[in-house]
Design a binder for these strands. Structure first.
Length: 300
DNA sequence: ATTTAGACCTGTCAGC
DNA sequence: TGCTGACAGGTCTAAA
């Protein structure tokens, strides 16, 4: 689900709502959601920590906690965060051992089944849920001094000032792989995923199968502008959501209505520039969406 | 050294 | 109605 814009939007919402709050304790309902350390140590270490800051790095949400700790959350495909006001609770009465069957009991979303994998109980009575039907998401707790090592494999942040056209050009130089695959590699550019990679290539009118090292300097310039533009718009629209994705308060983002190339399987999309139907092909086992007229495979 | 198939997971939807 | 298979926002590992 979440790519850079969705994670960034969540980070901003959390910053506005839980800064300074204290995590009294945590509950884990599916042990493998905790990637580090093991569950007993995690539960012991997280208790009574104050949330000092909330940030994003690549597709990770990073919470700076008191005691020189960082809590990292990666939502992978279907992971999500929900912030419940005081008075809400998980209704575990139906099937005590099956979090997938639990529903929410509260003033709104009554009966919603969140697939809760972990829960952070705040001292003020609120509750931060990590929900994830597919169980790919991971939560980890590290010493703050390990941060550099945790994130050492990532390329530049595309919305930071040091992500320049020259930097992108250097990152693509010598890569024989297709440009779509290169954009999905987190060591090239951090935070791009399948949706925004397709959108950036559409913006720049570059075919997804073009060799990464074959782009002209003006194409790299366009691609750079496209990456920045589609990510910025994605954040402004509250992220892209279809099916289950919800923001902290349970609202869906509306960037899906603004996508130009990526479309949900089974629908049809027409290129806004030339009217040609958008095509889909499989690249590296991922769907790629592009306009066969605007994004032609030339210049190889 | 790269590229690729498989693994990790479950829900939904199209087609028969 | 019910079963089967394809597909879904991501990333790691092993094999080719």
């Amino acid at each position: 689900m979440p790519e850079l814009p969705e994670v960034e939007y969540t980070a901003r919402q959390l910053r506005a709502s839980v800064l300074g709050a204290t995590i009294s304790n945590a509950q884990v309902f599916w042990e493998r959601v905790i990637g580090h350390p093991d569950v007993p140590d995690f539960l012991a270490e997280i208790a009574d920590r104050r949330i000092l800051n909330v940030r994003r790095r690549a597709k990770y949400l990073v919470l700076d906690l008191s005691g020189e700790l960082i809590l990292t959350i990666h939502r992978r495909m279907t992971g999500n965060l929900l912030l419940l006001p005081p008075g809400w609770q998980l209704d575990t009465s139906l099937k005590e051992t099956d979090p997938a069957a639990w529903s929410l009991k509260g003033p709104a979303f009554n009966g919603m089944t969140p697939y809760c994998r972990a829960c952070f109980n705040l001292a003020d009575g609120r509750c931060l849920l990590f929900t994830d039907p597919r169980k790919f998401g991971r939560i980890e707790l590290w010493s703050a001094r390990d941060e550099e090592n945790v994130f050492k494999a990532f390329g530049p942040e595309p919305l930071d000032a040091d992500f320049t056209v020259e930097r992108l050009s250097n990152l693509l130089a010598g890569r024989k792989t297709g440009i779509k695959q290169a954009l999905l590699m987190q060591e090239v550019v951090a935070g791009l995923g399948n949706i925004y990679a397709d959108e950036a290539l559409y913006y720049a009118s570059i075919h997804p199968l073009r060799r990464a090292d074959s782009l002209t300097s003006s194409e790299i310039e366009q691609l750079h502008a496209g990456i920045v533009a589609v990510l910025t718009l994605g954040i402004e629209h509250g992220g892209t959501s279809f099916s289950g994705y919800r923001d902290l308060e349970g609202e869906a983002g509306n960037n899906y209505d603004h996508l130009r190339a990526y479309y949900k399987h089974g629908t049809v999309k027409i290129c806004e520039r030339c009217g040609t139907p958008i095509e889909r092909l499989v690249i590296a086992q991922r769907a790629a969406h592009f306009c066969p007229n605007c994004q032609q495979l030339t210049g190889e």
